[in-house]
């Protein structure tokens, strides 16, 4: 279970305080207006931002003392996930060994991860020779290959067209069920995740203002921010 308890961050022009619980193996979609603090929440879990106070635990173990590389967390961004001078396989391998000196077992793991995201056969391609969807699959494969229990996805499929986007979300859903991975993903098209997400967290003004089953969260029209977001306010 991922537990975020009153984690507070302060900048000159922005304040945030997050409280959120996500069950192990669940897919939690983070939605909300842009500039509301969705990405900051993910960056805090990944360790790019350190809260001044509060607690952040995964299965009872605090993540706060750990540097980003030691956290049991993998992350996929919207852009610039891949290094343009490395092949798809090498980019995935970075998730296991940044030195790229792999053992045979690790080489197999890389192939399996590419297989899992349905990219077998494209190992030798460089990012410049792949489509946007393929590039994001490579990034996903890298997140999977390290077998970390928590994967953070920051608007990973926003630049893909709707059919491809749904397909990718289906792929994420299948993978996390098969491997019992917890997924926290920000997304600005909540309709894409209504069927697959176990949980939805609505983030605005630097805090989680509603959390629960997707349908219920988005029907809380009494909060004007949710109303405005859904276009029914």
């Amino acid at each position: 279970m991922l537990l975020i308890d009153r984690c507070r961050l302060t900048w000159p022009d922005f304040r945030a305080e997050y409280t959120l619980a996500v069950e192990t193996g669940a897919l939690c979609a983070v939605v909300g207006p842009s500039g509301g603090g969705k990405t900051t929440l993910l960056h805090m879990i990944a360790g790019f931002e350190q809260p001044e106070s509060g607690a952040l635990t995964l299965d009872g173990r605090s993540l706060l003392p750990l540097p980003p590389a030691r956290r049991p967390v993998a992350i996929v961004f919207q852009d610039h996930n891949l290094f343009p001078h490395l092949t798809a396989a090498q980019n995935v391998a970075l998730g296991l060994r940044p030195s790229l000196r792999l053992t045979d077992a690790e080489r197999t793991a890389v192939a399996e991860a590419l297989d899992a995201v349905e990219l077998d056969g494209l190992e030798a391609r460089k990012p410049g020779e792949m489509s946007g969807g393929q590039r994001q699959r490579v990034a996903l494969a890298r997140a999977l290959v390290s077998h970390r229990p928590l994967i953070l996805l920051d608007e990973p499929f926003s630049s893909l067209d709707p059919g491809l986007r749904r397909g990718m979300i289906g792929l994420v859903d299948a993978l996390r069920r098969r491997r019992r991975i917890t997924v926290v993903m920000t997304i600005h098209t909540p309709e894409d995740v209504m069927e697959v997400a176990d949980q939805m967290a609505f983030v605005a003004d630097g805090s989680v203002i509603a959390s629960g089953p997707p349908g219920r969260v988005l029907r809380q029209y009494d909060d004007p921010r949710i109303g405005a977001f859904c276009g029914t306010g």
Binding site: P67, P68, A69, R70, I75, F83, L86, G95, S99
Partner: peptide, 24 residues
């Protein structure tokens, strides 16, 4: 910036940062 965050998450050593971020 994303690549710097990736380098952080993946735990790049200084030499790997030189090779994958600075040198390119």
């Amino acid at each position: 910036a994303e690549q710097w965050r990736l380098a952080q998450t993946l735990g790049f050593s200084p030499a790997q940062i030189l090779r994958h971020l600075d040198w390119p």
